[in-house]
Amino acid sequence: MKGSFLWRNRVGLMGGALIVFSLYLMTAGVRHGDRIAAPARGMLEVLRPVQSGTADFGQGIRSVYHDYLNLVHVRQENERLLTELAQVRADQARMAELEVENRHLTELLELRDALGVDAIAANVIGSDATGLSHTLILGQGSASGLKAGMAVLSNRGVVGRIIATSPHASRVLLIDDHNSALDGFDQRSRARGIVAGVVDDGIIMKYVDRSEDLKPGDTIVTSGLDGIFPRGLLVGTVRGVHREGPGLFLTVQVDPAVDFRSLEQVLVVTQQMPQMTADQKG
């Protein structure tokens, strides 16, 4: 009851008893797996959800710390990497271009070797300013040995001929220009004609005898008779043959072998071509 010795000293007595009990727990070799430690194991289970939540929260805080409080360094690093990436991309694009250019030049070199003529490669740097004519501008001129009248080729076929030069530039008249004309023949039927450009785009082969046998799909090549283009170079493919009207000649529409809009490098034949006679054609 209140006021008794036990009541007045309940805290001390209780404390003493608990301390003794604690000493018993410590000295009796109680392990966490024993029955008496069940409340402690229960504590682990009870606190687990709280600790998981705290851990998630702590992880979130740490993420915030790492992601946002260090943002200054991240931003600097990001800017540096972006600059580096832009440089790498530019280098990559340049590499790709160099690879394409290398391939083109290799093909032109093979063409030159196959032709067995003197020739130099030239870069296409521009096209006709007005669009009325079909011409190209090359980045090499008389200083590189180019002259008016020289044949210009690509790995796919005939391109045109040089019509004007300056020391470091040249103009090329394409074969699909209405002022252009070259001597060619059908590789299958050997029918000869003049390949010329037309005003409204494209090329035709004219002055082909009406009796000649030409069909769509036939290959037109240079004859070498004009003294400009080497013999046997691909000009184009027959697209259509028209025999209408009372004239003596056929009108043969030809698809050029070369896509003039996609030219980047060309081969200029610097060697003077011998003008073959009709008897010398094969």
């Binding site: 404390g15 608990l18 301390i19 009990f21 604690s22 000493l23 018993y24 727990l25 410590m26 109680v30 392990r31 966490h32 008496i36 430690a37 409340p39 402690a40 194991r41 504590m43 682990l44 606190l47």
Partner: peptide
């Protein structure tokens, strides 16, 4: 005692110290 569940290997150690 609850602290002992999460600290150390001796059960009763923190129980006694906190009581003291």
């Amino acid at each position: 005692y609850a602290t002992d569940a999460f600290a150390g290997t001796i059960l009763g150690l923190n129980a006694m110290l906190i009581t003291v």
